[in-house]
Design a binder for these strands. Structure first.
Length: 952
RNA sequence: GGGUGGUUAGCUCAGUUGGGAGAGCACCAGCCUUACAAGCUGGGGGUCACUGGUUCGAACCCAGUACCACCCA
């Protein structure tokens, strides 16, 4: 069913109904699909987390992507904006586990892997669409027919293929390495999922006794090491001192007897030890700290793991060599005392034991940071586990080059440095996760642990020639979600098949994303895409800043300052807003504070502003790559702008519907105002187009806003009234003005559509027949191209003059407190032939807009008492003897004269400067000279006027 | 500690080859003028963080300082 606009537009802009109606119709009509011809243009949406809901960051990025997409589509390109969601391994698994526990009181282990996964899929089918539904409300013109999910079978094929090829090339390997371990969720997690939080911590200073009677130069029989994690003492393998540190030079190579454990460990020299920090000695625990791992590696130390996957102390340590093979030489015995204790319990006990032994030298209070799992909320433990890794170095090189060579460009440019810096010392990437929900690693093991990689057990048997006597078990781990999203641009287009889509839409044109995932996602997409397609995934990366609250604070649930984009679109009352902000808090005690804050900031809740206003605000604030402090006032301002456009359309429609608008190309006569607004329209079209091309959405939005409000509404619509309402107007004149009203409005709608799609479409449907335009939807209309030959410089200059006279009169009127509606007589003096021509041609505009009783040139009779303003050299006089406060007028002129004199002084000073005259460009000097002459002349005129007044 | 970005009107921010400081909102005054009070008209308001340098000329280029934010260690 086609949307039918109301019989007449409502007096006030009411976005909700319009927006829902059009979103539905556009999608149903299939306007979001690629048109199938023309130059291709494509954007892949950064797949949002399937468990997520739309936040301001999404709204921001999606508004930008939609603007680009609609803009390109209107340029008649074969445009694809592809949408989809990310399976979000941990988040989804946790969500379903919680649901299962709440509803059935079962754990995932009770169900078993197969059944649990079925539950996850059920959840996904029922509830996984929240964020895509919200996307629709934003007007996102994504091709819903091609919606993708990273767990789709087609996509899984790509994931498998990539894994297998990388493995076969030796770029994927399995090994024992330190990873960020989440002891609650029992999985490795990525750096991105680790939140570092500042806290007040303790630094425990322990004495480590030297073996064999060795003493320090000071005569002590121990070294002091400090640690924030005493429990790791059990896994220490050496103590490091700085090689330049003379205090300990004699001890390097000597041994220490590790307290409580009794193990002999050496003192080694390593730069990692900071001479100025504490005693300068550092305990090294390679199996429990990332830095220590590196130190251990340099000194060929074994890895002694003392913790379980729950981060409790093991009964016996696990000891490995650096290559991951078991180390039999070191005694794995751990003290009985700590067995099975949680790390924090073990810490307390260990400190107490050390104190009892007289080995606790000091406890220092310090500020430090601790890593927390962002999902589980528990402290992350670096833990030695078997994991799968991607060798990054060979993939990184081409990825760096692609950016160096400009095949991929970052906007803004400075993010390229960030990218290079990270890519230069990139580490191998841990891609396995100990979860059930995700892409299962396509690897099988035989009984002795040999690894076979392939699509399926069958494929593996064939590939490796394994008979049925060999029993195979598939690896239980899944792949990091980022591994699959790294294939997003080409995996979603059908790769590894050579599909038409892949040929047409890859590489994609631009990726719009936040700077926080350049490393985790952008870099990985570049590496993997280059590797497998020999193409870059996208030509441009447009990096957005963060949206913060009005105080510059990050929005977060715990701060209670989150703004939901949909609440700004549809509005929300205070009660519901409070409910939303204070429920489900991690720290419920914050609820009161948040409620108070919210009541203060939004005493009446949040009003409805509509999608267009929200989008326009986001775009208008999208300056290059910096964070945005959200400002509700700007949102209101742009909602008002939509209302302005709406009402302008009402005016145009009421004056053109059912009238002769010259649609058939009948002869017309264009007024100065018509020629001027047409000229300004061309300039604006060029400007908006240029800014969109440079990703300066703020400048594009601004140029549009200014043209619509300041030129079209404030001046042109007002100037059209005297023509339309003139009793003796010619048909050609009327037709010309009506046609211009309608055509310029129609162009405005096309120009604004990518930014504010709904309101423009709604109005356009009404305007198009009047403008003689065909088409089912504004979405498919042509992007307005500026026509240089329609820019009439004379008209622009003439209209500036008209505006100048009107403004002069308004100014005088206000200065003298004359009622706005009162008709005034006006006298013009010192009018040049040019001024006289302009006056002749535009008398009616001046009379109506300045509300003049009559308008004459000063003749022989001279001037009565007047208030005067200058327009260029021409004097604009209000002859109002009875109404003018003489003294006030003289004072006003004084102020004006003073201002001019200041100006003259500065300009004259410049011109007196020899080196300015000789060195500055001639044009600049000329300009200054003219400026001085103008100011001098004006000053003279004002002084003369003052004298005249005084005489009277 | 290293790196990046920022500091312009009360607030949020523009200012693109260095040449007369801008917008929106807020503020003040006056207006229900037949599109719009979510509006119209007029107005006030800034030592462009600070110091120095380059230049005839600096919000803009260079160096340094202070403060803020983010990234890395």
């Amino acid at each position: 069913m086609t949307s039918k606009p109301e019989a007449s537009l409502d007096k006030t802009y009411q976005p909700a109904d319009i927006e829902k109606r059009w979103a539905k119709e556009w999608e149903e009509k299939g306007y979001f699909r690629p048109r199938g011809e023309g130059a291709p243009y494509s954007i892949m949406i950064p797949p949002p987390n399937v468990t997520g809901s739309l936040h301001m960051g999404h709204a921001f990025q999606d508004s930008i992507m939609d603007t680009l997409t609609r803009w390109q589509r209107m340029q008649q390109k074969n445009t694809l904006w592809q949408v989809g969601t990310d399976h979000a391994g941990i988040a989804t698994q946790m969500l379903v586990e919680r649901k299962l526990a709440a509803e059935e009181g079962k754990s995932r282990h009770d169900l078993g892997r197969e059944n649990f996964l079925e539950k996850v899929w059920e959840w996904k089918e029922q509830s996984g669409g929240t964020i895509t539904r919200q996307l629709r409300r934003l007007g996102a013109s994504v091709d819903w027919d091609r919606e993708r999910f990273t767990m789709d079978s087609g996509f899984y094929k790509a994931v498998q293929e990539v894994f297998i090829r990388l493995y076969d090339e030796g770029l994927i390997y399995r090994g024992k390495r330190l990873v960020n371990w989440d002891p609650k969720l029992h999985t490795a997690i990525s750096d991105l999922e680790v939140e570092n939080k500042d806290q007040k911590g303790k630094f425990w200073h322990f004495r480590y006794p030297l073996a064999d009677g060795v003493k320090t130069p000071e005569g002590k029989d121990y070294l002091v090491v400090a640690t924030t994690r005493p429990e790791t003492l059990l896994g220490d393998t050496c103590v490091a001192v700085n090689p330049k540190d003379e205090r300990y030079a004699s001890l390097v190579g000597k041994d220490i007897i590790l307290p409580l454990v009794g193990r002999r460990i050496p003192v080694v020299a390593d730069d990692h030890a900071d001479m100025d920090k504490g005693s300068g000695c550092v305990k090294i625990t390679p199996a429990h700290d990332f830095n220590d791992y590196q130190v251990g590696k340099r000194h060929n130390q074994p890895l002694i793991n003392v913790m379980t996957i729950d981060a409790a102390i093991r009964d016996q340590a696990e000891v490995y060599n650096l290559d991951g093979t078991p180390n039999e030489a070191i005694d794995p015995t751990l003290p009985e005392l700590f067995k099975g204790l949680d790390r924090f319990e073990a810490r307390k006990k260990l400190v107490a034991e050390m104190e009892a032994l007289g080995l606790l030298e000091d406890i220092e209070e310090i500020n430090n940071t601790l890593p927390y799992g962002d999902r589980s909320g528990v402290v992350i433990e670096p833990l030695l586990t078997d994991q799968w890794f991607v060798k990054i170095a060979p993939l990184a090189e081409p990825a760096i080059q692609a950016v160096e060579k400009g095949e991929i460009e970052f906007v803004p440019k400075q993010y390229e440095n960030m990218y290079f810096a990270w890519m230069r010392d990139i580490q191998d990437w841990c891609i396995s996760r100990q979860l059930w929900w995700g892409h299962r690693i396509p690897a099988w093991y035989d009984e002795v642990g040999n690894i076979y990689v392939g699509q399926s057990e069958e494929a593996v048997r064939q590939k490796y020639n394994l008979g049925t006597e060999v029993s195979l078990e598939q690896d239980t781990d899944v792949l990091d979600t980022w591994f699959s999203s790294g294939l997003w641009t080409f995996g979603t287009l059908g790769w590894p098949e050579e599909t038409e889509e892949l040929k047409t839409f890859h590489p994609t044109d631009v990726l719009v994303t936040g700077f926080d995932i350049i490393f985790f996602w952008v870099a990985r997409m570049i590496m993997l895409t280059l590797k497998f397609t020999d193409q870059v995934p996208f030509k441009t990366v447009y990096v957005t800043g963060l949206i913060r609250d009005d105080n510059g604070q990050k929005m977060s649930k715990s701060k209670g300052n989150v703004l939901d984009p949909l609440d700004m679109i549809d509005g929300i009352d205070l009660e519901n807003l409070l409910q939303k902000r204070t429920s489900g808090l991690m720290q419920p005690q914050l609820a009161d504070k948040i409620a108070k804050q919210t009541k203060k900031a939004f005493p009446e809740g949040i009003g409805a502003h509509g999608t267009d206003a929200l989008r326009f605000t986001l775009l208008a604030m999208a300056t290059t790559g910096r964070d945005i402090n959200w400002d509700m006032k700007r949102l209101e301002g742009y909602r008002n702008f939509c209302n302005k456009l709406w009402n302008a359309a009402r005016y145009v429609l009421s004056n053109t519907e059912g009238e002769d608008c010259g649609v058939q190309g009948e002869p017309v006569e264009l007024t100065l105002a018509d020629r001027w607004i047409i000229s300004r329209l061309q300039q604006t079209e060029a400007e908006v187009t240029r800014h969109l091309g440079n990703y300066r959405f703020d400048l594009a939005a601004n140029a549009f806003y200014e043209f619509v409000w300041n030129d079209y509404c404030d001046w042109y619509l007002e100037l059209s009234k005297p023509v339309l309402w003139k009793e003796d107007a010619h048909p050609e004149e009327l037709r010309g003005t009506r046609r211009t009203l309608v055509r310029v409005l129609e162009a405005i709608l096309r120009l604004g559509h990518p930014m504010i799609p709904f309101i423009t479409e709604e109005i356009w449907q009404r305007v198009k027949p009047l403008a003689g335009v065909e088409g089912d939807s504004l979405m498919l209309a042509e992007w307005p191209e500026a026509a240089k030959d329609q820019i009439d410089d004379q008209a622009i200059a003439d209209l500036e003059w008209v505006k100048g006279v009107i403004l002069a009169v308004r100014n005088l009127r206000a200065e003298m407190n004359l009622p706005p509606g009162k008709l005034l007589p006006l006298l013009l003096d010192k009018a040049s032939p040019e001024d006289q021509r302009r006056l002749q041609e535009n008398r009616i505009f001046l009379q109506k807009l300045a509300k003049l009783e009559n308008l004459q040139l000063v003749g022989e009779e001279g001037l009565p008492m007047t208030a005067m303003q200058l327009v260029g050299q021409m004097e604009v006089h209000l002859p109002l003897a009875g109404l003018i406060d003489k003294e006030a007028e003289i004072a006003r002129l004084d102020k004006e004269i003073e201002r001019l004199q200041k100006d003259m002084q500065r300009t004259a000073g410049k011109l007196k400067n020899e080196s300015f005259i000789s060195k500055a460009p001639a044009a600049v000097v000329e300009k200054e000279k003219a400026k001085l002459a103008d100011a001098e002349a004006a000053c003279e005129q004002l002084k003369k006027q003052q004298q005249e007044l005084q005489k009277l």
